[in-house]
């Protein structure tokens, strides 16, 4: 283990804590020795080793989720100084102190900074965010995807289900049923895929149900907050057009629901 460089400086943190689901919240202040190049997670790791508040009181270690530490898994999202983002790529040098850490309250809080993002994964199941290729025999190769289409579709595939857009969205909350921006953009991704497009009406039907596409209020916070720069509002508008066409097909009756 590399020993901490004694810089003589400290990092001040205020963490909103909660011991149980739906439990009481409280704020605790921490003072962590500063090291060059720190991120929020390294500060949290220090608190885990020395769970002592700034005024010297012994406390429990702070709980948070993390995995890849390189902003691709989406697990370590939290609200840092009011903005939802990944704590692994949130660099202490770029944050104003005291750094305020809060859980993304649009999700059920499990404990401290740890949230349950199940509603996002359930939404991905609901909208069938996959390409069905299973059959009783080899279906062979699928149709080719035009390269220029692949390039923009790749941007949509960067979604890591981190929940930042859900936290930023004013229409995603406990009191509303909206599935949120991330799963909607996945519908556009899989409806763009040439094999996925063979079931595009099923995905459109899913987002034309309760809590679906039409619940978007166009605040456009999602696209401003997305750490991967995914054009979420363009996806939503594109799906709105596809849903308008599908709506006419459904109502006036077509002998084929796909193309």
């Amino acid at each position: 283990m590399m020993e901490a460089v004694n810089t003589g400086k400290t990092v001040e943190l205020i963490i909103v804590r909660q011991d149980t689901e739906n439990g009481q919240t409280r704020e605790e202040k921490f003072s962590v020795p500063y090291r060059p190049g720190m991120n929020v997670i390294s500060a949290l790791m220090h608190i885990q080793k020395y769970p002592v508040t700034a005024d010297g009181k012994q406390t429990t270690p702070v709980t948070w989720d993390m995995n890849c530490l390189e902003e691709v898994c989406g697990a370590c999202s939290m609200v840092i100084n009011g903005r939802p983002q990944q704590s692994c790529s949130a660099l202490v040098d770029k944050l104003t102190q005291p750094i305020r850490l809060e859980p993304m309250k649009t999700f059920p809080v499990v404990r401290d900074l740890q949230v349950d993002r199940s509603r996002m994964f359930n939404a991905l199941k609901k909208v069938k965010a996959w390409v069905p290729i299973d059959g009783t025999y080899d279906l062979g190769e699928g149709p080719r995807m035009p390269e220029r289409k692949r390039q923009w579709a790749y941007e949509l595939s960067k979604c890591m289900t981190c929940g930042v857009c859900m936290e930023a969205c004013p229409n995603v909350s406990e009191k509303a049923s909206f599935i949120g921006p991330a799963p909607l953009s996945q519908v556009r991704l899989f409806n763009t895929h040439p094999t996925g497009a063979m079931n595009k009406d099923e995905r459109l039907a899913a987002i034309m149900g309760d809590g679906g596409l039409a619940n978007c209020g166009n605040s456009q916070n999602c696209v401003a907050a997305c750490p991967k720069g995914i054009p979420l509002t363009t996806s939503i508008a594109a799906l709105n057009r596809a849903a308008t066409v599908q709506m006419f097909k459904n109502f006036f009756g077509s002998d084929h629901m796909v193309d």
Partner: peptide, 24 residues
């Protein structure tokens, strides 16, 4: 009904569009 299911957050996201959302 739509207005009361929103959770306004213009203090955290003070973009023009988010203000328009709230003002709407």
């Amino acid at each position: 009904y739509i207005a009361f299911t929103a959770t306004n957050n213009t203090s955290r996201f003070s973009t023009f569009r988010n203000w328009a959302f709230r003002l709407q």
